[in-house]
Protein backbone atom coordinates (compact mmCIF):
# COMPACT_ATOMS: atom_id res chain seq x y z
CA UNK A 1 0.00 0.00 0.00
CA UNK A 2 1.27 3.40 -0.91
CA UNK A 3 -1.15 5.64 0.97
CA UNK A 4 0.19 8.88 -0.35
CA UNK A 5 -0.93 8.03 -3.84
CA UNK A 6 -4.44 8.81 -2.66
CA UNK A 7 -5.35 12.39 -3.58
CA UNK A 8 -5.64 14.55 -0.50
CA UNK A 9 -8.59 16.65 -1.62
CA UNK A 10 -12.08 15.65 -0.62
CA UNK A 11 -15.16 16.79 -2.49
CA UNK A 12 -17.50 15.45 0.13
CA UNK A 13 -18.50 17.30 3.28
CA UNK A 14 -18.87 15.87 6.75
CA UNK A 15 -22.42 15.71 7.98
CA UNK A 16 -24.18 13.65 5.33
CA UNK A 17 -26.98 11.55 6.73
CA UNK A 18 -25.65 8.11 5.80
CA UNK A 19 -25.73 5.35 8.40
CA UNK A 20 -22.58 4.78 10.48
CA UNK A 21 -20.10 2.74 8.48
CA UNK A 22 -21.82 3.42 5.15
CA UNK A 23 -19.82 1.92 2.30
CA UNK A 24 -21.55 4.14 -0.23
CA UNK A 25 -20.16 7.21 1.52
CA UNK A 26 -16.66 5.83 1.29
CA UNK A 27 -17.24 5.00 -2.36
CA UNK A 28 -18.33 8.55 -3.17
CA UNK A 29 -15.35 9.96 -1.33
CA UNK A 30 -12.93 7.89 -3.39
CA UNK A 31 -14.70 8.49 -6.69
CA UNK A 32 -14.61 12.25 -6.25
CA UNK A 33 -11.00 12.19 -5.13
CA UNK A 34 -10.26 10.74 -8.55
CA UNK A 35 -12.64 12.84 -10.63
CA UNK A 36 -12.11 16.21 -9.00
CA UNK A 37 -14.23 19.33 -8.99
CA UNK A 38 -15.03 19.40 -12.70
CA UNK A 39 -17.64 16.74 -12.23
CA UNK A 40 -21.41 16.79 -12.31
CA UNK A 41 -23.25 13.97 -10.64
CA UNK A 42 -26.54 12.71 -11.99
CA UNK A 43 -28.31 10.88 -9.23
CA UNK A 44 -31.38 8.72 -9.58
CA UNK A 45 -33.24 7.67 -6.44
CA UNK A 46 -30.88 5.80 -4.13
CA UNK A 47 -29.44 6.02 -0.62
CA UNK A 48 -27.21 8.83 -1.78
CA UNK A 49 -30.30 10.71 -2.93
CA UNK A 50 -31.11 11.11 0.72
CA UNK A 51 -27.57 11.23 2.02
CA UNK A 52 -26.64 14.14 -0.20
CA UNK A 53 -28.75 16.38 1.96
CA UNK A 54 -32.16 17.97 2.25
CA UNK A 55 -33.00 21.30 0.70
CA UNK A 56 -31.12 23.63 0.86
CA UNK A 57 -28.06 21.66 1.93
CA UNK A 58 -25.56 19.59 0.03
CA UNK A 59 -23.03 16.99 1.09
CA UNK A 60 -20.86 17.39 -1.97
CA UNK A 61 -18.63 20.07 -3.39
CA UNK A 62 -19.70 19.19 -6.92
CA UNK A 63 -23.15 19.76 -8.42
CA UNK A 64 -25.75 17.06 -8.11
CA UNK A 65 -28.64 16.70 -10.52
CA UNK A 66 -31.22 14.40 -9.03
CA UNK A 67 -33.43 12.47 -11.37
CA UNK A 68 -36.14 9.83 -11.35
CA UNK A 69 -35.30 6.29 -10.36
CA UNK A 70 -35.17 4.74 -13.81
CA UNK A 71 -33.50 7.59 -15.57
CA UNK A 72 -29.94 7.91 -14.30
CA UNK A 73 -28.28 7.06 -17.58
CA UNK A 74 -30.79 8.95 -19.73
CA UNK A 75 -30.59 12.19 -17.77
CA UNK A 76 -26.81 11.97 -17.94
CA UNK A 77 -27.04 11.53 -21.72
CA UNK A 78 -29.01 14.74 -21.98
CA UNK A 79 -26.72 16.63 -19.65
CA UNK A 80 -23.66 15.46 -21.56
CA UNK A 81 -25.26 16.61 -24.80
CA UNK A 82 -25.99 20.01 -23.29
CA UNK A 83 -22.44 20.44 -22.03
CA UNK A 84 -21.04 19.41 -25.40
CA UNK A 85 -23.31 21.85 -27.18
CA UNK A 86 -22.06 24.56 -24.84
CA UNK A 87 -18.51 23.61 -25.69
CA UNK A 88 -17.73 22.19 -22.28
CA UNK A 89 -15.98 18.94 -22.95
CA UNK A 90 -13.87 19.13 -19.81
CA UNK A 91 -16.54 18.44 -17.23
CA UNK A 92 -17.09 14.79 -16.41
CA UNK A 93 -20.69 13.65 -16.16
CA UNK A 94 -21.12 10.78 -13.78
CA UNK A 95 -24.30 8.95 -12.97
CA UNK A 96 -24.14 7.74 -9.39
CA UNK A 97 -26.72 5.06 -8.82
CA UNK A 98 -27.43 2.25 -6.42
CA UNK A 99 -27.92 -1.33 -7.48
CA UNK A 100 -31.70 -0.96 -7.78
CA UNK A 101 -31.33 2.02 -10.10
CA UNK A 102 -28.76 0.12 -12.13
CA UNK A 103 -29.53 -3.60 -12.17
CA UNK A 104 -33.30 -3.20 -12.06
CA UNK A 105 -35.35 -0.14 -12.83
CA UNK A 106 -32.54 1.81 -14.47
CA UNK A 107 -31.16 -1.04 -16.51
CA UNK A 108 -33.03 -0.16 -19.71
CA UNK A 109 -31.82 3.41 -19.68
CA UNK A 110 -28.31 2.24 -18.86
CA UNK A 111 -28.33 -0.31 -21.66
CA UNK A 112 -29.63 2.32 -24.05
CA UNK A 113 -27.05 4.90 -23.08
CA UNK A 114 -24.20 2.42 -23.30
CA UNK A 115 -25.39 1.17 -26.67
CA UNK A 116 -25.36 4.78 -27.86
CA UNK A 117 -21.88 4.96 -26.32
CA UNK A 118 -22.79 8.10 -24.43
CA UNK A 119 -19.74 9.95 -23.18
CA UNK A 120 -20.17 9.54 -19.42
CA UNK A 121 -19.24 7.51 -16.41
CA UNK A 122 -21.89 5.38 -14.82
CA UNK A 123 -20.94 4.36 -11.30
CA UNK A 124 -23.10 1.87 -9.51
CA UNK A 125 -22.49 1.60 -5.79
CA UNK A 126 -23.85 -1.80 -5.08
CA UNK A 127 -25.13 -2.54 -1.60
CA UNK A 128 -27.02 -5.54 -2.87
CA UNK A 129 -30.60 -4.58 -2.05
CA UNK A 130 -33.01 -1.65 -1.82
CA UNK A 131 -31.45 -0.30 1.35
CA UNK A 132 -32.98 3.14 1.32
CA UNK A 133 -36.48 1.67 1.40
CA UNK A 134 -35.68 -0.88 4.08
CA UNK A 135 -33.68 -3.76 2.59
CA UNK A 136 -35.83 -5.28 -0.15
CA UNK A 137 -34.17 -7.66 -2.59
CA UNK A 138 -32.90 -6.44 -5.94
CA UNK A 139 -31.40 -8.36 -8.80
CA UNK A 140 -28.05 -7.48 -7.25
CA UNK A 141 -28.90 -9.34 -4.05
CA UNK A 142 -26.63 -12.38 -3.89
CA UNK A 143 -27.73 -15.95 -3.49
CA UNK A 144 -28.12 -16.86 0.14
CA UNK A 145 -29.10 -13.45 1.43
CA UNK A 146 -32.13 -12.65 3.49
CA UNK A 147 -33.87 -9.35 2.83
CA UNK A 148 -37.26 -8.06 3.89
CA UNK A 149 -38.73 -9.45 0.67
CA UNK A 150 -36.71 -12.68 0.76
CA UNK A 151 -37.36 -13.45 4.41
CA UNK A 152 -37.19 -16.58 6.51
CA UNK A 153 -36.97 -19.78 4.56
CA UNK A 154 -37.49 -17.91 1.31
CA UNK A 155 -34.00 -16.43 1.30
CA UNK A 156 -32.76 -15.62 -2.16
CA UNK A 157 -31.86 -18.73 -4.10
CA UNK A 158 -31.03 -17.17 -7.45
CA UNK A 159 -27.73 -15.65 -8.40
CA UNK A 160 -26.83 -12.01 -8.45
CA UNK A 161 -27.08 -10.48 -11.90
CA UNK A 162 -23.65 -10.11 -13.42
CA UNK A 163 -23.89 -6.51 -14.44
CA UNK A 164 -20.34 -6.07 -15.69
CA UNK A 165 -20.67 -9.00 -18.05
CA UNK A 166 -23.98 -7.60 -19.27
CA UNK A 167 -22.25 -4.33 -20.05
CA UNK A 168 -19.24 -6.04 -21.56
CA UNK A 169 -21.72 -7.63 -23.95
CA UNK A 170 -22.55 -4.06 -25.04
CA UNK A 171 -18.85 -3.73 -25.93
CA UNK A 172 -18.68 -0.81 -23.55
CA UNK A 173 -15.53 1.31 -23.76
CA UNK A 174 -14.53 0.54 -20.21
CA UNK A 175 -16.09 -1.48 -17.44
CA UNK A 176 -14.49 -2.24 -14.10
CA UNK A 177 -15.28 -3.48 -10.67
CA UNK A 178 -14.00 -1.69 -7.59
CA UNK A 179 -14.20 -2.12 -3.86
CA UNK A 180 -14.24 0.37 -1.03
CA UNK A 181 -11.57 -1.77 0.63
CA UNK A 182 -9.14 -1.09 -2.21
CA UNK A 183 -8.91 2.70 -2.41
CA UNK A 184 -5.91 2.93 -4.69
CA UNK A 185 -7.43 0.48 -7.12
CA UNK A 186 -10.74 2.30 -7.10
CA UNK A 187 -9.19 5.71 -7.54
CA UNK A 188 -7.02 4.48 -10.38
CA UNK A 189 -10.06 3.04 -12.11
CA UNK A 190 -11.99 6.27 -11.77
CA UNK A 191 -9.02 8.18 -13.09
CA UNK A 192 -8.76 5.81 -15.99
CA UNK A 193 -12.48 6.10 -16.61
CA UNK A 194 -12.17 9.87 -16.54
CA UNK A 195 -9.38 9.78 -19.08
CA UNK A 196 -11.28 7.54 -21.50
CA UNK A 197 -13.45 10.38 -22.74
CA UNK A 198 -15.70 9.82 -25.67
CA UNK A 199 -17.43 6.62 -24.67
CA UNK A 200 -19.43 5.03 -21.93
CA UNK A 201 -17.60 3.87 -18.85
CA UNK A 202 -19.06 1.77 -16.10
CA UNK A 203 -17.70 1.16 -12.63
CA UNK A 204 -19.36 -1.36 -10.40
CA UNK A 205 -18.48 -0.58 -6.79
CA UNK A 206 -18.92 -3.02 -3.98
CA UNK A 207 -20.22 -0.83 -1.15
CA UNK A 208 -21.03 -2.63 2.05
CA UNK A 209 -24.12 -1.73 4.05
CA UNK A 210 -23.91 -2.48 7.77
CA UNK A 211 -27.60 -1.74 8.22
CA UNK A 212 -28.88 -4.01 5.48
CA UNK A 213 -26.32 -6.75 5.83
CA UNK A 214 -26.81 -6.90 9.55
CA UNK A 215 -23.24 -6.56 10.62
CA UNK A 216 -21.32 -4.19 12.90
CA UNK A 217 -20.56 -0.87 11.27
CA UNK A 218 -16.84 -1.14 11.90
CA UNK A 219 -16.70 -4.25 9.70
CA UNK A 220 -17.79 -2.37 6.60
CA UNK A 221 -14.40 -2.17 4.92
CA UNK A 222 -13.18 -5.49 6.25
CA UNK A 223 -16.20 -7.25 4.76
CA UNK A 224 -15.69 -5.50 1.45
CA UNK A 225 -12.11 -6.68 1.43
CA UNK A 226 -13.20 -10.21 2.19
CA UNK A 227 -15.61 -10.14 -0.74
CA UNK A 228 -12.59 -9.57 -2.96
CA UNK A 229 -10.34 -11.96 -1.10
CA UNK A 230 -12.87 -14.75 -1.47
CA UNK A 231 -13.25 -14.10 -5.22
CA UNK A 232 -16.90 -13.41 -4.61
CA UNK A 233 -16.41 -9.93 -5.99
CA UNK A 234 -13.36 -10.08 -8.26
CA UNK A 235 -11.58 -6.86 -9.10
CA UNK A 236 -11.18 -6.63 -12.83
CA UNK A 237 -11.45 -4.39 -15.87
CA UNK A 238 -12.85 -4.93 -19.34
CA UNK A 239 -11.92 -2.71 -22.25
CA UNK A 240 -14.11 -2.62 -25.33
CA UNK A 241 -15.94 -5.61 -23.90
CA UNK A 242 -13.12 -8.00 -24.71
CA UNK A 243 -9.82 -7.05 -23.15
CA UNK A 244 -9.92 -8.32 -19.59
CA UNK A 245 -7.49 -7.46 -16.82
CA UNK A 246 -7.68 -9.17 -13.44
CA UNK A 247 -6.49 -6.94 -10.61
CA UNK A 248 -6.52 -9.33 -7.69
CA UNK A 249 -6.60 -13.02 -6.96
CA UNK A 250 -8.35 -14.09 -3.80
CA UNK A 251 -7.16 -16.73 -1.40
CA UNK A 252 -9.93 -17.25 1.11
CA UNK A 253 -12.98 -19.50 1.29
CA UNK A 254 -16.28 -17.73 0.80
CA UNK A 255 -17.38 -18.95 4.23
CA UNK A 256 -15.06 -16.40 5.82
CA UNK A 257 -17.12 -13.71 4.16
CA UNK A 258 -20.56 -15.18 4.71
CA UNK A 259 -20.09 -15.95 8.38
CA UNK A 260 -19.58 -12.35 9.38
CA UNK A 261 -22.97 -11.13 8.18
CA UNK A 262 -26.40 -11.49 9.69
CA UNK A 263 -28.06 -11.70 6.29
CA UNK A 264 -26.31 -15.04 5.73
CA UNK A 265 -26.63 -16.32 9.32
CA UNK A 266 -29.23 -18.94 8.39
CA UNK A 267 -27.01 -20.70 5.83
CA UNK A 268 -25.99 -24.27 6.62
CA UNK A 269 -22.57 -25.61 5.74
CA UNK A 270 -24.20 -27.25 2.78
CA UNK A 271 -25.68 -23.97 1.60
CA UNK A 272 -22.32 -22.29 1.96
CA UNK A 273 -20.69 -25.06 -0.04
CA UNK A 274 -23.23 -24.46 -2.79
CA UNK A 275 -22.38 -20.76 -2.78
CA UNK A 276 -18.69 -21.61 -2.86
CA UNK A 277 -19.42 -23.68 -5.93
CA UNK A 278 -21.14 -20.75 -7.62
CA UNK A 279 -18.22 -18.51 -6.80
CA UNK A 280 -15.71 -21.03 -8.11
CA UNK A 281 -17.71 -21.44 -11.28
CA UNK A 282 -17.91 -17.68 -11.88
CA UNK A 283 -14.23 -17.34 -11.11
CA UNK A 284 -13.40 -20.01 -13.63
CA UNK A 285 -15.56 -18.30 -16.23
CA UNK A 286 -13.82 -15.03 -15.57
CA UNK A 287 -10.38 -16.54 -15.81
CA UNK A 288 -11.19 -17.97 -19.21
CA UNK A 289 -11.63 -14.41 -20.42
CA UNK A 290 -8.41 -13.01 -19.05
Amino acid sequence: MKPFDIPQNDYMYSGHVGCPGCGAAIAMKFALKALGEKTIIVMPACCWGVMSGSHPQTALKVPILHTAFASGAAAASGLRAALDMRGDTETTVMTWAGDGGTFDIGFQALSGAVERNEDFIYACYDNEAYMNTGVQRSSATPAGARTTTTPGKDWKRTRKKNIVEALAAHRITYAATASIAFPEDMILKFKKAKSLKGGSRFIHIFASCPTGWRMPSEMSVKIARLAVRTNLFPLYEVEEGVRYTLNYTGDRPVKDYLKLQGRFAHLTDQDMDAIQKMVDEDWKQLQKKI
Binding site: I6, S14, G15, C19, G21, C22, I26, E218, S220, V221
Partner: peptide, 28 residues
Protein backbone atom coordinates in the same frame (compact mmCIF):
# COMPACT_ATOMS: atom_id res chain seq x y z
CA UNK B 1 -8.77 7.38 3.93
CA UNK B 2 -11.63 5.16 5.02
CA UNK B 3 -13.62 7.52 7.23
CA UNK B 4 -17.08 7.65 5.62
CA UNK B 5 -17.73 10.96 7.34
CA UNK B 6 -14.59 12.86 6.34
CA UNK B 7 -14.33 13.31 10.10
CA UNK B 8 -10.68 12.39 10.45
CA UNK B 9 -9.01 15.68 9.71
CA UNK B 10 -5.45 16.62 9.15
CA UNK B 11 -4.66 20.24 8.83
CA UNK B 12 -1.38 21.11 7.22
CA UNK B 13 1.53 20.07 9.35
CA UNK B 14 -0.51 18.86 12.28
CA UNK B 15 -1.45 15.39 13.43
CA UNK B 16 -4.72 13.76 12.53
CA UNK B 17 -7.64 14.42 14.81
CA UNK B 18 -11.19 13.23 14.90
CA UNK B 19 -13.87 15.83 14.39
CA UNK B 20 -16.25 14.71 17.10
CA UNK B 21 -19.02 16.89 15.73
CA UNK B 22 -19.23 14.61 12.73
CA UNK B 23 -17.87 11.24 13.89
CA UNK B 24 -20.73 8.74 13.98
CA UNK B 25 -18.64 6.21 15.86
CA UNK B 26 -18.81 3.58 13.14
CA UNK B 27 -15.42 2.23 14.18
CA UNK B 28 -14.05 1.62 10.69
Amino acid sequence: VFCPEVAVVKEDGSARRIDMDYCKGCGI
